[in-house]
Nucleic acid binder design. Structure first.
Lengths: 194, 194
DNA sequence: CTAATCATGTAAGGCGTTACATGATTTT
DNA sequence: AAAATCATGTAACGCCTTACATGATTAG
């Protein structure tokens, strides 16, 4: 049984598949729109290009987790609006409560930091300050979005945007940490002894 | 000019290549040993299997950034000990001061959190508490390692292990944040209104 | 009239994991 | 006697990015 087989619901769903279900559970959407939605705030934690999304939607449909309705689109092909099925909701609900599988960490900033002794300290300090700036700007954005959500009552766990609120709270705390750490190491490299 | 071309030093080096140089700048090593070194603490931020490391070392040698000396090994093949070259040191020093290229975020926990409303709140709370536990255990490990480094004087930026110290400081702060956030959302899901 | 946006797909190639393959030495 | 460790490589396959391909509608 190949992966493109239709009419079976027991095929393994990739994390990307669940990411799409996370969006589709909030309402029907086209592949194009899903690509656009993979921005704020979920795009801070998961992204995908349309070249990945279109084949994945076809797989989800083959597994019976979504269906689509086609209509006339702007281009040469039909526009397809995807909707999550009851099986899709069940599959998502079960996946959500499982602890995440550990994925390989990829943090280039910490990789550089591990070898910080092999570079010029002043140039490294400048790099860290530039990163502090970048994270500081993101922090300001996140704080603004968080305040807007709080105003709409999204701190309540029953609110439909509570998920946005909770992820943004993490984002704010993480950016604060990164700004503080970057400033700490920069000052260490400039003022510090030896 | 293909990637396997020898005797040229201008070929693009991948991030994995620089990760290996980050280790080799501390001293010569075999591919096997590099795979083992990609654990504490650099493995918290970057990992690779031996199947990736061996071909990458050959590419680095083709680019003139490392050399190797062969001796008799335990198995059917020769044991190769790699050493960073002066060109390798220069290339690394230049790479270190560049700000990291933005890589696609992959945070499965935040992905799940975005769709938290589609799952059973109590089961989600249990999952978050399990994660808080896991991160709490890592936090204890990191704190132990950090204290050992501090005792050896690694807070000094001139110390050969200052890189380990700085990355671990980030690790401790990050794990603290994750534990606190997981506990916050778990209590929100259990006690919270609605 | 030019550019952006909407909309869907495929192809080539890099990166990374798992599994296959070999075999000596040391520990249990 | 069996298992773990040391040590190096290749092959198959999945995930992901970049680039190729098409074309209507709308905004500047």
């Amino acid at each position: 049984m190949t992966r493109s087989s239709r009419s079976q619901g027991s095929l393994a769903v990739s994390t990307l598949g669940y990411a799409l279900l996370c969006l589709l559970v909030r309402g029907p959407s086209t592949g194009y729109d899903l690509a656009a939605q993979l921005r704020r705030p979920i795009g801070y934690y998961w992204t995908a290009r349309h070249s990945q999304i279109y084949p994945e939607l076809a797989r989800l449909e083959g597994a019976g987790l979504v269906t689509h309705e086609a209509g006339s689109g702007p281009g040469p092909r039909e526009k397809k609006t995807y909707t999550i099925t009851a099986a899709g909701r069940d599959s998502l609900a079960e996946w959500l409560v499982h602890p995440p599988t550990r994925t390989a960490p990829k943090n280039e900033l910490m990789l550089r930091t591990f070898a910080v002794g092999a570079a010029d300290p002043l140039r490294m300090a400048q790099m860290y300050l530039a990163m502090a700036n970048e994270h500081g700007q993101r922090l300001a954005q996140y704080r603004g979005q968080l305040a807007a959500l709080a105003d709409n009552g999204a701190e309540d766990r029953g609110h439909p945007r509570f998920g946005n609120y909770a992820t943004l709270r993490f984002g704010v705390a993480y950016e604060e940490l990164r700004v503080a750490w970057c400033r700490w190491i920069a000052s260490k490299l400039v003022d510090g002894p030896s």
